[in-house]
Nucleic acid binder design. Structure first.
Lengths: 332, 332
DNA sequence: GTGAAAGCGCTAACAT
DNA sequence: ATGTTAGCGCTTTCAC
């Protein structure tokens, strides 16, 4: 072993030795379990010893002992959506921390869901929060078998074996499309991004648009678009005469609007465009963008739910629903 | 203990039993250590047994044994910057995975750096990658003491005790300001977001602007701005006659441009505005936004560096630099 | 080519 | 009020 440039990390045994107590006592003091069991004097001595040695507990050892870690896992893709979401994640992180959990985001976009679930399962997290497409039945099974107490999926339908936070992607499409149709649009396009596993969500949103269009007999066409100016411009140049667009989300919507303007098509005059997520750029765009706002619900409540499910596993079922609301602005 | 709704998680002992070998053999086979030590027949039997039992190794046990986990930790705030960054993080995740590491992002924005470092240290990660403001000397010390092999800071100056990827925030400001001055601007404003711990970066960027302004004698004023339309509008309404702005980043730049336009101030006619990050929205804005592009370097190389440092800890020092480049567009 | 066994750091049941 | 101890699942040295 190469020379240790730093003092060997202190263990609870070191703390015990320095404080002149047993390791058990150290554990009781530092974890505040069974309050009143250890005298105040001893507690003080233990804390002082821990402080002096710069003691930091070993999460892996605790996890091994407990059978699971205190990790709550989420796919990192979530964080990239925008400030609203990332602020909300901050709140969630804080709320979970107060329950003793550590929220971590893990990438693995596009990879085989089961492969990703395997990596997650190895960490023996207390809970996993993830959108449905990543949580295939095999992935859920893998996680449950590995002992993950709370597997919470967000998706349109209850997921067998997992708790489900209902999040109807199709509702996004339906809300936007119903509005476009009400505005008299009958030739609808639905933007279908191919990037980063968004295709699954896009397909569900498309289905929602189709539903809304069914009755009134509007025509619906899925249109692939990459998040790329040249691609957007090419689409706008060859615009097939759609008079209404549901653009997957605000980013794609703003990209398309800009491209349409570039080729002289008026928004909403010639083409009405609606997005989703209701980010600030949507609000300040010209024309201001109609969007479907997603209301993620209280981070505190979700943290409490996670804690409850971890403490006493319950029958899988629906644990809540994400609400959404159409914000009408100038672009439609 | 409440009833186990799921089969008890299989351990390597279970696999060994089913395959009729020892736990040692299981370990050798599944980790591919010492190839050629175990016969092909045995290997196949072990693999089959693992498969059949749905065996998933226990990261905590491995970490306990190894003295450290295979986690590489980064602050989650990074992911929220934009698609470019989050795509790059994906690459990094993949590259690290190939070296056997798991990249996880952890929040904890705004909290006491030492408190956050403590949570990180408990996970005994193999490496930590973080911007300087979070890595105070005390935080670095804590991590090193906990045995983290590679603490890689990104910041303007070498960080004592840590490896440093040089990332000159002030260079961003300097590049933008030099350009504004070259365009004849002499009354410069620097937008100072207060949110999410951005203030530290903002201060450094401001310092860069001041440097660039020193020689030519341009006047520099820091101007607080929240990421909020009303705040931006209020600023624009009371615009104190600045003729050039470095806007912290593209998001704030686009917000300000929009507010200036709202009150009838022309960009770049009356006010030239430059951002940073060079996101797609900057490119397609009207006027297209001048921005400083940040080039994060190769994810593969960074992953390899992490691996090298973990394998054989080296003297802390400078391990590379993030380059940046001014992209001139219409807004200046 | 394979097995036995020690030990990583922690917690909690049990003993004093 | 405090201490003893077993054992969580894994890797790896050493013995066969």
């Amino acid at each position: 072993m190469p020379g240790r440039p730093h003092p060997a990390r202190a263990t609870s045994a070191d703390v015990a030795r320095l404080a002149g107590v047993s390791r058990a006592t150290v554990s009781f003091v530092l974890n505040d379990t069974e309050p009143g069991r250890v005298s105040d004097a001893t507690r003080a001595r233990v804390r002082a010893a821990a402080e002096q040695l710069g003691y930091v507990s070993h999460a892996a050892a605790r996890a091994l002992r407990a059978g699971r870690s205190n990790l709550v896992l989420m796919p990192a893709s979530q964080a990239a959506i925008g400030r609203l979401v990332s602020d909300w994640l901050d709140e969630l992180q804080l709320a979970l921390h107060e329950h003793g959990y550590t929220l971590v985001l893990h990438g693995g976009r596009g990879a085989d869901p089961v492969e990703v679930a395997r990596v997650w399962a190895e960490m023996r997290p207390a809970a996993v929060l993830a959108p449905v497409p990543g949580l295939t039945p095999a992935a859920v099974e893998l996680l449950r078998t590995a002992g993950v107490r709370a597997v919470i999926a967000t998706g349109g339908e209850p997921v067998p074996g997992a708790h489900t936070m209902i999040f109807r992607q199709d509702e996004l499409g339906r809300l936007a499309a119903a509005h476009l149709i009400e505005r008299g649009r009958r030739r609808l396009a639905v933007l279908m991004p191919g990037e980063r596993g968004l295709d699954v969500f896009a397909a569900e949103r498309l289905a929602g648009v189709r539903q809304a269009a069914g009755g009134p007999g509007a025509e619906v066409t899925p249109v692939p678009l990459r998040y790329d100016w040249d691609d957007a411009l090419a689409l706008a140049r060859a615009w097939p005469g759609f008079d209404g667009v549901f653009a997957y989300n605000d980013e794609y919507a703003l990209l398309l609007v800009r491209a349409l303007q570039e080729v002289g098509l008026e928004v909403p005059g010639s083409v009405a465009v609606a997005g989703a997520d209701d980010l600030l750029p949507a609000r300040i765009a010209r024309p201001a963008l109609t969007s479907v706002r997603i209301e993620p619900g209280s981070a505190d409540e979700l943290a409490a739910l996670v804690h409850r499910l971890v403490e006493e596993p319950a029958e899988p079922g629906v644990v809540g629903a994400v609400r959404m609301r159409l914000i009408v602005r100038e672009s439609t």
